[in-house]
Amino acid sequence: MPDEIALKVSNLDVHYKDFQALWNVFLEAQKGEIVSVIGANGAGKSTLLNTIAGLLAPTQGAIECLGEKIDGLPPYKIVPIGITLVPEGRRIFPRLTVYENLIMGSYTPRTRSSRNEALKKIYQLFPVLKDRHNQMGDTLSGGEQQMLAIGRALMSNPKLILCDEISLGLAPVVIKSIYGRLRQINQEGITIVLVEQDIKRSLKVANRAYIMLEGKMVLEGEPSSISEEQVRKAYFGI
């Protein structure tokens, strides 16, 4: 069912106290798609992902995931529905082992039962995590940490993962390998929403792309239809 909607965000407003970070934001991801959201620093990309993941509550608007209304729900209710976040900067748990980090991904009761199969899959996908399963999180290299963060997000058997700046601070060869795995994950039917500074790479993998500027969605389309000029405009406002 390629046309089933995995995620639908509409008319979303988000405030940090008095400051409005998102204005009437919309986003749609079909099931099995990779959707890329690009935009300058501070455009509101992370805010959008954090709101979808339930870390922030929208002041207005709706978020639907596979037909369920999830806006305003806390993360512990959203994770079992099938959305998980790969946070910006990896943010693995430094004083937990690799194994424990992964287990944390299936912390919610409803995701616990399928923990072992999920673990097996992730170890196949990232064999390095299996080798290092008993090491402390903070002893991993940057690339390994990113793999761990992705693996952690996959532990709950999600239908949709939200990846925030997964190439940040990594060597090109590592980025390439991680994007390879991301495709693999996507091929298994998991929808991916990608937020990236690395425009080229994220446009290359995406089925569809959105451009954000100052908390608003300014453009939506197939990656091929987005011109460099439009991108530049989104980034520099000219």
């Binding site: 082992t97 072992n116 673990l119 097996k120 399963h133 008993n134």
Partner: peptide, 12 residues
């Protein structure tokens, strides 16, 4: 999976 691994773990 967990049980099999136990023996060689650093954390007992």
């Amino acid at each position: 999976m967990e049980k099999k691994k136990k023996k060689k773990d650093r954390y007992d």
